[in-house]
Simulated scan of single mutants.
Amino acid sequence: MPAQRTALVTGANQGMGHQVARELVADGATVYVGSRDHARGAAAARAIGEGAVALQLDVTDAASVAAAAERIGREAGCLDLLVNNAAVATTRTGVRDVAELRASAAPTRVPLEEVRAVWEVNAFGPLAVTQAVLPLLRRSPDARIVNVTSALGSLGLAADPSSPQRPLFDPVYAASKAALDALTLSLMVELEGSGIKVNLVSPGFARTALVGFQGTETVESAAREVVRVARLGPDGPTGTFTTWQGVDVPW
C-alpha cells in the first residue's frame, strides 16, 4: 500500500473494521476510525495507536455523515481510501444464537421494521457515506472504495439449488448485502474511467459481535482479503467481487 494515504473505515471500533484499520495504520496510513459511539471509537483508536483517528460516524444519520466528511476534508484535504465496513445482522436484542437469528428472519414472518432497520445500515449507509466523501476521493490521485459485503448476498449462489448458501438467503441480512452488491455495481459502472476504483469483498465468517462470536474464522484470517484489496495501488484492479480466499464471487 502506498505510504501517506488517508483512509476512512466505518464500523472500525471492533471486529473486522478494527482489524482492517489496525493493518492499514501499520502500513503507514492515517486511518479515521469510524464509530457510531465516539467513546468506543476513541478507545479503539488508542488501542491501534499513532495514525488512528477516532471519528464519530453513524452511517444512518445524515448529519453525522455530513459532519464526518467535513472533518476529514478540513483535516486531511482529501481521502484516498474508503472502506464501507459498518454492518448489523439484526437490530433485535435477546437473540441467543445464529440459528435463532436465521429462524426469525424468515420472509413470511419477519417484521418489516427489522428489514428496514438492517437495510438502513447495510445498504443505504454505505451509499450515504460514499456520496458524502466522494468530493474528497476525487481529490486523490489514487482513490479506492472497498465495500464489505457477504457471499450470502450473492444471487448467483442463492439461486443455485446445489449451493450451501441457498438455505441461508433471507430478506434481512442476506438481502441487504445483495442490495449493497447492486449499489456497488452501480458505482462501478458510474465511476469507470474516473480514476476512482471500486471493489467488493466478502470476508470470512469471523468470530465477531455481528454473529455473536459464533464464526469459524479468526478476525485476522477473515479480514485478509479486505486488507489485500484496500492495499492495492493505482495499478490494482477495479470492479472485482472476491471472497476472503481471494476467488471471484458470482453476482
Rank of each mutant, 00 (worst) to 15 (best):
V65P: 08
L157F: 06
A86G: 00
L136V: 01
V53L: 13
A3C: 08
R40I: 03
R139C: 07
L127R: 01
G41I: 05
A12D: 03
V247T: 09
F213K: 02
N13L: 10
P250C: 13
E114A: 09
A89F: 12
G17C: 12
R144V: 10
F205Y: 14
A63P: 06
S64Q: 02
R116T: 08
D61G: 13
R116P: 00
D37T: 11
L101M: 15
M188L: 14
G153N: 03
P164F: 13
P141L: 14
S162Q: 06
T216G: 13
G94C: 06
Q19V: 04
G246Q: 14
L136Y: 05
A128R: 15
T216L: 12
T240R: 03
A123Y: 00
D248G: 02
A21F: 04
W119K: 06
E75D: 04
L127S: 07
A175Y: 14
P141F: 15
A68P: 04
I145A: 10
R139A: 15
P161N: 11
G193F: 03
S104N: 11
A117M: 04
G246F: 14
Q4P: 00
G246P: 10
A69Y: 08
T218V: 05
T238H: 03
V201Q: 15
A52L: 01
A66D: 10
S202N: 05
A86N: 01
E50P: 02
A128W: 08
A209G: 05
I145H: 08
T208K: 00
V20L: 14
P167A: 05
A175L: 13
G11T: 08
V118S: 03
N147C: 13
N199E: 12
K197F: 12
K177C: 01
S140V: 04
D160P: 06
V25D: 06
I48G: 00
A175S: 13
Q56A: 08
R92T: 02
L210P: 03
S64W: 11
F124V: 03
K197R: 12
A223W: 10
N13E: 06
A63C: 06
G94H: 13
E100A: 14
A7T: 02
V249L: 15
A54R: 01
E113K: 10
H18F: 09
G233K: 11
G195N: 14
G28S: 07
S163R: 06
E192S: 11
G233N: 07
T91H: 07
L200N: 02
T6L: 13
S162F: 06
A54K: 00
A39E: 14
R207H: 10
G125K: 05
A63F: 09
V121P: 01
Y32T: 11
Q245R: 12
S202D: 15
L155V: 04
P203D: 00
G41M: 07
P141G: 12
H18E: 10
P203V: 11
S176C: 01
V31P: 04
L185W: 09
G215T: 04
S140L: 08
S162Y: 04
D160C: 06
P107Q: 11
P164S: 07
G41W: 02
T238W: 02
A43I: 02
L82I: 10
R139L: 07
A105T: 12
L152I: 08
T208N: 09
A123G: 01
L210Y: 05
L187N: 02
R144Q: 11
E217K: 15
M188Q: 05
E100H: 09
S35A: 14
